[in-house]
Amino acid sequence: MAVLTEAQTEFFEAKIARDEKIEPRDPMPDGYRAHLIRQISQHAHSEVIGMQPEGNWVTRASSLRAKLILLAKIQDECGHGLYLYSAAETLGISRDEMLAQLHAGKAKYSSIFNYPTLTWADIGAIGWLVDGAAIVNQVSLQRTSYGPYSRAMVRICKEESFHQRQGYEIMAQMMAGTRKQRAMAQDAMNRWWAPALMMFGPPDNDSPRSHDAFNWKIKRESNDTLRQRFIDKTVQQAEVIGLTIPDPDLKFNEATKHYEIGPLNWKEFYDVIKGNGPCNRQRMEHHMQVHEDGAWVREAAQKAALNGQKPA
């Protein structure tokens, strides 16, 4: 990568200052490009790995309607992974390379997907809490400074608007159901609440690299701001359907008009990121196996294309 000339640097900084989007062929600092590749590919990997815990329940969904909705939702996640890989590719990295980084453990994905989906209620909890948290983050990212990433986020936010409702509907249905179903819903809530809050990343005073991300307007709002927004709206939704937030310290602060939560277990968060979560190995092995199983198909398609077009 060439060092930017003074004029190019000026062009880049002026665009950022004017809140204009940076486009693929625009000059940009290496650090900006590297930060985006890391963030967008991690985001893409999260969408794709996130298909697994939910995919675990597609064949066991509780009704035809639930099956259609769940499959359409997971399909969207696949599509969103695709949009994001496409956005990252405009920065000069290939999908092959991104997958190789994932398989080598050099690229991360959201830690939340290293938890198992044990019951049907977990599908409700994921849609409501995990997608709910992701949406808060993604809405904010629509204003990110890199054009292709921003446009992917706009498309993704539009499509994901039903995802959280799908999950909340399952939780509401179970909370209105039998005692067994209510217990199952609360159990799922108990297991997914804290990991969902930690999806926003470490507290602001403990967040590496965020300084550049703010200056470059890649990140527009802080982890704690986004987390608070999610907590404030979710607590009310839990109350409506009779779920208890699994946090004895949770309280409403009349002065700030915000809910305050008890301490989160950040040691667990970092442990899971490092690979020590219940499903880390399983998720990666699944992804690598599928990748290997599909190699002969991709190879065949490429070879066949060299033999000309299929007759219409």
């Binding site: 956005a87 590719e89 992917a152 398609a301 490429q302 066949a304 294309a305």
Partner: peptide, 9 residues
């Protein structure tokens, strides 16, 4: 946006 494919169809 973009997609990956080996041929036009």
């Amino acid at each position: 946006g973009s997609v990956h494919a080996s041929d036009r169809q």
